[in-house]
Each structure stands twice: as structure tokens, then as C-alpha cells.
Design a protein around this nucleic acid. Structure first.
Lengths: 144, 144
DNA sequence: GTAAGTACGTACAAAAAGGTAAGTGCAATG
DNA sequence: CATTGCACTTACCTTTTTGTACGTACTTAC
């Protein structure tokens, strides 16, 4: 427990021009984000998703449900701390679902939610493209 | 002038097991990267592309050629230093092409290369998805 | 004459990300 | 009975990233 650290950013003076949407009064009814504007929540979401380990986790989980230790072994170089932290952020944003069974050696499963599968596919497309083009990029680097 | 700061990373002892490819002797002939393995160059490329400002620059440049200061104004919150640095990395990887005209107020253009346009599209797909789904994600965050 | 715009480079400082090592509680394994 | 694995958490420290502020060289606008 003890992970309820909500950032309260409700300052009295309205947050102006955050995502260029008519703010009709009450809670945030945002129709769409805009990455180009500072302070748009999409920036935050991006950060989690495109973080060093976030990318890899999404791609790994696209292949199916994994246990914590399976992910650790699958993703070369990740530390337990980072694995736990990144999984929690992805869970917080509704991309992964954590299921724990109260058995004696702990058994915890991580799987993508429908939302997570959607974004995971975009990330994998990027990852695949890079993997395929590593030679070209390396060549471009050297020819300077 | 004066921007030839090449990093020489040619250490005598071969870089072993880097991307699980039969290393047939000479320079790096890599067929494909593998993001899951540490030390694969794809990780490095990823880092540049998915960096905070790298993402935004690729998306911005997909809309066409821009000058330095145009980019600075377009991308909310970026500092000149980060703009220059990120552009240089993208140029180094062969994603952007820099053209400068020797006129008196300096005039420099940045545009995507064919390679940059390809990867830019993948990144934009991710960005678009996020922008569209900001409301859902925000909702997921709050419902806990 | 002073300010502003252009496209950066550089030094220093702050912030964020990441790594390491240890601890937890319990059971199966040797 | 000591060790190992499980799924983490925590404290502490190092590395990386990012920001701030200033300098440059020259010209046009005020």
C-alpha cells in the first residue's frame, strides 16, 4: 500500500491554454491532448511509455502474460527496482493489469489491458522498425 | 565549421555477443537488432528517438522543413540547448538533414531524411494514439 | 544608440533516472 | 539446517538528463 501520491495541481486560477479545449466548468473534460503544448497530460503519458524500460515492457507483454521474474529474465539489464517501478506506472495509466494469487511463494501475473495492447502495438511497430534498420542507421553514423 | 566531434569507439578487443549474429570477421555486419538484449545498438537508437524532445521533433518535422527558431516556438517548453542537442543526435543517426545558408542573419533549415520520415511516422502514430486517448487514460488513473 | 533576432556553444547547477545492496516471510530443496 | 526463489521495498549513491544564463557576430528596426 501507500502508493496514493496524487499530485494536486488544482490551483485556484484556472490552468489556461493547457490543451486548447473549451473548458466547460467542472472536472477535466478533455477531448484530445496536444503533445506540443507544455503541461498537456499527454507529455506525462509519453514519458512513461517511451521510457527506457517502459518501451521494452510493453513489447514484452504483448507476447502474453508474464510473471515478475520472467520479465526480469527476458529484459536484459533491467534491475528489480526499475522493473517494479515501471510496471507500477504502466498499471497506474491503465496499460497493465496486475493479478496476484495469495500463495506461498508469491505468484503475480502481469498482462496488458485492452488499452495497453493498443499502445503496445504502436510501440512495437517502432521497435520493429528500429531493429530492422539498425544496419542502415549504423551505416549513416559512420559515413560522416 | 567546428562541429566535427566524432566519438571513436573502436576498441581493439571485439565487442562480443552484442546482437546474436554470426560475426563474420570484419566490421559490424548486423542483419537485425534485438531490443531485448543489452548492448544491442538498437537500445541507443531508441534512446535518442524516444527521448523527451526527440519524439516531438520527429513529429514536428514530419509536417515539413523548419528553421531552428520555428522549432523552438512550435515545441512548447524546449530550451535552445536541448533543441540543438537533440537535432544533432537525430542528424547523427541520419534522421534529419541540416542545411545552412551563409547569409547574415543565419538561416538554417532542418528536414527529415527518407529514413527520418519512416521512423517519424511510427512515432507520430504513437503520439496520435496518446493524444486521442488522453481522456481514457486520465479516467483510468482516477478510478483507483 | 539600443534592442531584438538569428543559430548556436559553453559552464554550471538542478533534477530525474537508474544502479546496488540489503531486507522481508515463508516454503521447497538439498 | 543452510540455501534458494518469489515479488517486492527501502536507503543510499552515481550517472544521465535537462535547465539557466550568458556569450558570439552581425544586421535590421526603433
Amino acid at each position: 500500500m501507500a502508493k496514493s501520491s496524487q499530485k494536486e495541481k488544482s490551483s485556484p486560477q484556472a490552468r489556461s491554454g493547457q490543451h486548447e479545449v473549451a473548458d466547460r466548468g467542472l472536472s477535466g473534460l478533455i477531448r484530445r491532448g496536444n503533445v506540443f503544448s507544455e503541461k498537456c497530460p499527454s507529455r506525462d503519458i509519453m514519458k512513461n511509455v517511451t521510457s527506457r524500460w517502459g518501451v521494452l515492457l510493453l513489447v514484452a507483454l504483448l507476447e502474453g502474460t508474464h510473471r515478475f521474474s520472467e520479465l526480469r529474465r527476458k529484459i536484459g539489464g533491467i534491475s528489480e527496482k526499475m522493473l517494479a517501478q515501471t510496471l507500477q506506472r504502466l498499471e497506474y495509466d491503465g496499460f497493465v493489469q496486475r493479478t496476484s494469487y495469495p500463495v506461498v511463494p508469491p505468484y503475480v501475473e502481469y498482462r496488458l489491458t485492452p488499452l495497453g495492447r493498443q499502445i503496445g502495438k504502436k510501440v512495437r511497430a517502432l521497435g520493429d522498425w528500429i531493429e530492422e534498420n539498425v544496419p542502415k542507421i549504423l551505416a549513416a553514423r559512420e559515413s560522416r
